[in-house]
């Protein structure tokens, strides 16, 4: 898998005139990588992910997956949204099966795949529950299982833990890291949470705002099987401070004026 984003720009036409959301973004993600793009609000990070998913079209530049230009949404780029996007009338099992069903995969194979990924996210015993019976963190785990069941080349995650409380969020981050270690799935996640980015990613893109551009690419050289204690390490703190400074650097003049 090779995801490449080349000089990508996106301009929105609004009543107040055009707004440049993304300006000349260059990025890439390789097989099995966990990459985070971190930026403040206004950095166009959600727009960026939507473009990769094919839900919006860029104004300039292109996105390719294994050399194929992205022209629309497809199951090779599975997406996990911040809002819980489970189908409320389907059981957990059917939710996880749904992507496979859309792709025309037979009932038996569907059931097996879904059961496997429900086990991966630890929700086997909730297979017959309805989404409304689950907590926020569990819903997000179902959404992740559903995305994984379609065997995407890359999983796109749009601030997936943004709506969760602090404790659940920490549990989910640890869960996400374990999941990535076990499945080897390639992930591109966007977040405004610097801690989250350093904790999860092998590589971080720091985005500036208005317009969104890539300010810096940063390699996070921490063990891949990190646990929450890594946050106390000197190296973790250094990465964190560095990213904070980068984000702040762009902010300070605006605040001063």
């Amino acid at each position: 898998m090779h995801l490449e984003i080349n000089s990508l720009s996106k301009q929105f036409e609004t009543r107040q005139g055009p707004i440049l959301a993304l300006d000349g973004i260059d990025m890439h993600v390789e097989t099995g990588e966990f990459v985070c793009a971190v930026g403040a609000s206004g950095s166009g990070k959600s727009t960026l992910l939507r473009l990769v998913a094919g839900l919006d079209m860029p104004t300039a530049g292109e996105i390719t997956v294994d050399g194929q230009i992205v022209t629309g949404p497809g199951s090779d780029r599975g997406m996990v949204f911040q809002s819980y996007t489970l189908y409320p009338w389907m059981t957990v099992q059917n939710n996880v099966e749904f992507g496979l069903k859309l792709q025309g995969i037979g009932a038996k194979e569907r059931r097996e795949m879904a059961s496997y990924y429900l086990d991966v996210v630890g929700l086997t015993r909730f297979a017959r529950s309805l989404p409304k019976q689950l907590s926020g963190g569990m819903k997000q785990r179902v959404a992740i299982a559903r995305t994984l069941a379609s065997r995407p080349k890359i999983m796109l995650m749009d601030e997936p833990f943004g709506a969760l409380d602090v404790q659940t969020k920490e549990t989910m981050q640890q869960f996400m890291l374990d999941l990535w270690n076990r499945t080897g799935v390639s992930i591109l996640m966007i977040t405004h949470d610097v801690d989250e980015a350093v904790f999860l990613a092998q590589r971080v893109y720091v985005l500036t705002a208005h317009p969104g551009t890539v300010q810096r690419e940063l390699f996070v050289d921490l063990p891949s099987d990190r646990t929450y204690t890594v946050r106390r390490d000197r190296a973790f703190q250094d990465y964190r401070e560095e990213i904070m400074d980068l984000l702040r650097g762009k902010m300070t003049p605006a605040l001063a004026s």
């Binding site: 998913a53 094919g54 839900l55 629309g72 949404p73 497809g74 199951s75 780029r77 599975g78 997406m79 949204f81 809002s83 996007t85 189908y87 409320p88 009338w89 749904f98 992507g99 069903k101 859309l102 792709q103 959404a143 559903r146 995305t147 379609s150 796109l156």
Partner: peptide, 24 residues
């Protein structure tokens, strides 16, 4: 987001109409 999820899972517009919008 529910419709967009359907498209990123590989769903076509027809499928979104009959398998997502209608039951919803």
């Amino acid at each position: 987001a529910l419709l967009e999820t359907t498209y990123t899972l590989g769903g076509q517009r027809r499928q979104a109409l009959f398998q997502v919008i209608a039951p919803y």
